[in-house]
Design a protein around this nucleic acid. Sequence first.
RNA 1: GCUCCGGUGGUGUAGCACGGUCAAGCAUUAGGGACUCUCAAUCCCCCGACUCGGGUCCAAAUCCCGACCGGAGCACCA
Length: 496
Amino acid sequence: MNSLSPEEQQNVALSEFPEILQKEEKKPQEHHLPELRNHGGKVVMRMAPSPSGPLHIGHSRMAILNDEYVRRYGGELILRIEDTNPANIDPFAYEQIPRDLEWLGVRVDRIVIQSDRMEIYYQEARKLIEMGKIYACTCKTEEFKAKLLKSIACPHRDQDISINLKAFENATAGKTKSKEAAFVVKTDLDHPNPSVRDWIAFRVLDHPHPRHGDKYHLYPLMNFSVAVDDHLLGLTHVIRGKDHINNTEKQKYIFRYNGWTLPEYYHYGLVNFPDVILKTSIIKKGIQAGQFSGWDDIRLGTIMAFRKRGYRKETFRKYWIDSGMREIDSEFSKEIFNSINKSFIDNTTPRLFFVRNPVVLRIDNLNASGVDIPNHPTNRELGHRHYDIRYDTRIAVSSDDWTSLQPGDTIRLKDFCNIRKTSDGAEFAGKEMVKGIPIIQWVPDPEIQFTVYRPDGTSDTGFVEKYIQNGSGLFQFERYGYVNKGSDSAGYFLHR
RNA sequence: GCUCCGGUGGUGUAGCACGGUCAAGCAUUAGGGACUCUCAAUCCCCCGACUCGGGUCCAAAUCCCGACCGGAGCACCA
């Protein structure tokens, strides 16, 4: 069977086992996301990154999952920038996050910045204080924790509402010192999970905010502002990482006290990214120390870095849709990701020869006047490139190829001619294709030095064809890999 | 330690809500082959999994219990 050509194989299958082919025609097995619960028509969804830095590959999952569902059902996708911790903000992120999302093809309908909504959180807090659901606590952090661990109420828990209100006004007015007071949501002191018992909703913090300077002194913690916004923004479904499961439990108390309807929650499993640098704190330090060139350093796992290397946005989407929304933790597969990416680029990417660690040869008796090389093995639309060849044209090959040969060995310069290695150089060995001999890439009249930077921090340098100057974007360097051109002399390695 | 969640081939998943059509599908990787002036693409073939032990049932990957393993959270980060 294997000795037949593909068409012959097809024919045999067709005549002898028609049911096999029919079966395959049934469905191309497109992966798709499950239906959402209670999605009565339109949905309102959100993604909520903190502006500690640009988005990375991990964020892309949440962005694409949410975007996919809003596209499917219609509705609204909100980008909510969660900047209620002024100590962990990189102002650059405010502008870069929307750019990252746009590049990913995520359609954001509305941007909400939490620090612009402080008065709303204060208002909601006052309401809950008046309802007796939030109290001001002036315990020391350690005492507070210790008590909760034993399910013991702290002395402030039942103090008069007027005291709590007064404390709140003092705190918002900046009359309270950091750590001197916190505002706590009453939940259930007997809740099995100690972290859900009476959790802190606001903290006093004197740290300048990049957007608001010293205007605010009392900041909501994530669980409070998220709950309030999820309701006020009309969220119908929330999709986020499993690390938020416990937060969901806490947030539900705010919904319950206000009589608000809960959104449907989904939590996808955590993804482990081996060998990918994602932590913004590490990246920041590295950039400051000059170890990384910036947020788009190709050694990083940021969206900017993937983009710089030439990945297609479609790859992110397909990868995350394929991964689904299961709650199991998983490992990011670079192999699958790259394979998906290749399927998007292969047919439209022009080929070029690149010889790293080059050896420049003069070929004795070179008998040719010119050569045309196709830019793609099957896609004719990409045309071809032409070189004039003289008897003394110098030719570069990769030493990786050349040094493995013995004098007398013959190889073929792809799409051109055969050469034979001699004791001190090379000689012409005919133009006709000889089956079975190795075929290598080559560069005539080598002039253009090119360096390929690789994501592992290494680089390769050699000669590339001069036609690199005529194009931009992606090339496939034959037998080497895909490279995204940065300039006429350097580029970034994408994948094989 | 406590709380919660989860365990399908090397990797990513489908199936599990309503047990039989699943001696388990797809993709990727590894291997073999066809084709090919790339060690690419394409095509064909092939290796490979329901964590374990009990239970319910005519029938369990699917339901129940236990064990084991893994993950997350554990309070002034998001």
